[in-house]
Computed example of a mutant assay.
Amino acid sequence: MNLKNKLRWIMAIVTTFLFAVAVGQSAKASTIDNSYALSSNQGSSLRTSNNVVIAHATAVYAPARNVAIFENRTWYSNGAYVQYIVGDGGKIYRVGAEGYQAWGAGSWANANAPVQIELAQTYDQAEFRKDYVTYVNLLRSSAVKYGIPTTVDSSAWRGV
């Protein structure tokens, strides 16, 4: 291997390391905004089995804050809400309570997912990058918290 190729490998390793550090710092810096969380007498009172973490997308180009407000306001009339919405430059908004069924993915998934997370859609590439890093880190940390595998295709009935 010539010197030029060795330098490329070293730069690739250093870049990967720096990216991993930046992702880790972003995850630590994330705080959860509880402004739109359902109260203790709202939402489902049914506990979940801890088998899956559900990853959603909002399917609308709207600020994550607006989605959280909408889910908080219409959780009962629409029969739909999740625990978290991620967007607006890496912010996390709580709606439902972890460990209790949310109404976002059908009866089996709702009963088996202690956490369901929606990623807000945006046309802004820089905002999306922040949102996506926060989203993936929240998915991962939620799975770890509930003992759910994070490996790809680990099981048909357990995972993200």
Results as ranks from 00 to 15, higher is better:
Met1Tyr: 06
Asn2His: 02
Asn2Cys: 11
Leu3Arg: 09
Trp9Ser: 13
Ile10Asn: 00
Ile10Trp: 01
Ala12Asp: 06
Ile13Met: 11
Ile13Gly: 00
Val14Thr: 06
Thr16Arg: 11
Ala22Ile: 09
Ala22Tyr: 13
Gly24Phe: 12
Gln25Val: 13
Lys28Val: 02
Lys28Ile: 14
Ile32Phe: 04
Asp33Tyr: 06
Tyr36Cys: 06
Leu38Asp: 01
Ser39Trp: 04
Ser39Ala: 10
Ser40Tyr: 09
Ser40Gln: 15
Asn41Leu: 11
Ser44Ala: 12
Ser49His: 11
Asn51Ser: 08
Val53Tyr: 02
Ala57Ser: 15
Ala59Arg: 08
Tyr61Ile: 08
Pro63Cys: 05
Pro63Thr: 15
Ala64Arg: 03
Ala68Pro: 07
Ile69Met: 12
Phe70Ala: 11
Phe70Ser: 06
Glu71Gly: 03
Glu71Asn: 14
Arg73Pro: 09
Tyr76Pro: 07
Tyr76Lys: 15
Tyr76Trp: 15
Ser77Pro: 04
Gly79Asp: 03
Gly79Leu: 04
Gly79Tyr: 00
Ala80Cys: 15
Ala80Met: 05
Ala80Phe: 08
Ala80Pro: 09
Val82Asp: 03
Gln83Asp: 07
Gln83Leu: 02
Tyr84Ser: 06
Val86Ser: 00
Gly87Lys: 00
Gly90Asp: 03
Ile92Phe: 05
Ala97Cys: 07
Ala97His: 01
Glu98Arg: 06
Glu98Asn: 08
Gly99Gln: 04
Tyr100Ala: 04
Gln101Lys: 05
Gln101Ile: 00
Trp103Lys: 10
Gly104Asn: 04
Ala105Phe: 05
Trp108Pro: 14
Trp108Met: 15
Ala109His: 13
Ala111Met: 12
Asn112Phe: 07
Ala113Glu: 05
Ala113Phe: 00
Ala113Ser: 04
Val115Gly: 00
Val115Met: 01
Ile117Lys: 02
Ile117Val: 11
Glu118Cys: 07
Glu118Val: 08
Glu118Gly: 03
Glu118Lys: 01
Glu118Met: 03
Leu119Asn: 00
Ala120Arg: 06
Gln121Phe: 04
Thr122Glu: 07
Asp124Glu: 10
Gln125Trp: 08
Ala126Pro: 09
Glu127Leu: 10
Glu127Tyr: 10
Phe128Gln: 06
Phe128Trp: 05
Arg129His: 11
Arg129Thr: 06
Lys130Ile: 04
Asp131Ile: 02
Val133Gly: 03
Val133Asp: 06
Thr134Arg: 08
Val136Asp: 04
Leu139Gly: 09
Ser141Tyr: 05
Ser142Thr: 05
Ala143His: 01
Ala143Trp: 01
Val144Phe: 07
Pro149Tyr: 07
Thr151Asn: 15
Val152Asp: 10
Val152Ala: 09
Ala156Trp: 14
Arg158Lys: 15
Gly159Val: 12
Val160Tyr: 11
Val160Gln: 15
